[in-house]
């Protein structure tokens, strides 16, 4: 049994996996780790993989995308599973494997991809930028956001922000890696603590005003809200502190509506447009079908 220790990123796995496959290394002979400080109990020191041969390795293109996405998952078993899938797709002779969604390895791959993709989607949704400064020379506004992703998604999730917010400078800070955009390029720096990010933005009050008033107290569906916006995100959302009160007040607000005297219909005001509508409505429609 050999232990392969790689840095926790997809490109490192890919380089190593190519070399191992070129040596026809069976997945059962390997233990994978991306933690250099905790070598496995039963491992032998691993010789560095030899220079890769020129044998081209071809896999279905979909596998590369799926593998890149699954590599962002935090499960420590992902490197081993990715190598086993790679082996099965090539030397194992199961080139059609990805078509079998019911295969346990494929299922696991897709589950990890789904978790990563959901995490990316939630990052796109719940990042909240705070204005921190305006550059005096370029006059570009500078924004900073804080987000706590479940997986290592910063590099996968940030092209979206570059496309969407090209006209402003921004930084998204997370505990493990930060992404920045300065109008020219996107670059990354190591993670920082929560205290490095601003807590408030001058617009947050107006946003909360909107949130409070777009809520309809007559149709409370709390589980529907929470399935899409789980509580773990609430601590970084400026609108979330309103939720408890909105729910608590809703039945009183509906009761007030139900006990309000009904308003009688007011006659139409004198308006040329309304008069023209009235005339149009009185004309019989020859092809009008009553359904």
């Amino acid at each position: 049994m050999r232990t392969i220790i790689i840095p926790p990123d997809f490109d490192a796995w890919r380089t190593t996996a190519r070399q191992l496959l070129a040596q026809s290394t069976h997945p059962d002979e390997l233990l994978w780790s991306d933690n250099p400080t905790e070598p496995s109990l039963f491992s032998e020191p691993s010789p560095p993989p030899q220079a890769s041969t020129t044998t081209p390795i071809t896999v279905p293109p979909a596998f590369v995308d799926l593998a890149r996405s699954a590599a962002a998952h935090t499960s420590e078993k992902r490197w081993a599973l990715l190598y086993r899938l790679l082996w099965r797709l090539t030397l194992g002779g199961e080139r059609h494997l990805l078509a079998i969604a019911t295969d346990p390895d494929v299922r696991q791959l897709q589950d990890w991809c789904k978790a990563v993709s959901r995490d990316i989607h939630k990052m796109h949704a719940f990042v909240r930028f705070r204005l921190v400064a305006v550059d005096t020379t370029t006059r570009r506004e500078q924004f900073v956001a804080w987000f706590e992703p479940d997986h290592r998604i910063v590099r996968l999730a940030t092209p979206f922000f570059e496309k969407r917010f090209a006209g402003m400078d921004w930084s998204i800070l997370t505990p493990y890696e930060c992404a920045h955009w300065d109008g020219q390029k996107r670059y990354f720096t190591p993670g920082v603590p929560r205290s490095s990010a601003p807590d408030e933005d001058a617009l947050d009050d107006l946003w909360r005003t909107y949130y409070r008033n777009i809520f309809n107290p007559a149709r409370v569906k709390i589980s529907a809200m929470q399935s899409e916006m789980p509580k773990k995100y609430w601590k970084n959302l400026p609108e979330a502190p309103l939720i408890a009160d909105l729910i608590a007040e809703s039945s009183t607000r509906v009761h007030d509506m139900l006990t309000t005297p009904e308003r009688p219909a007011k006659p139409a005001p004198n308006n040329a447009y309304l008069e023209s509508l009235r005339q149009m409505n009185e004309q019989p429609n020859p092809d009008h079908k009553t359904s």
Partner: peptide, 28 residues
Amino acid sequence: KDSRGSQGVGSTGGSGICHSYTPDGRCV
């Protein structure tokens, strides 16, 4: 469409994003 190469902001074309949810279960 997106804002690259402009001084503005904005992009569309992917799947829509729900940026928040109110307690009526509707997305914002």
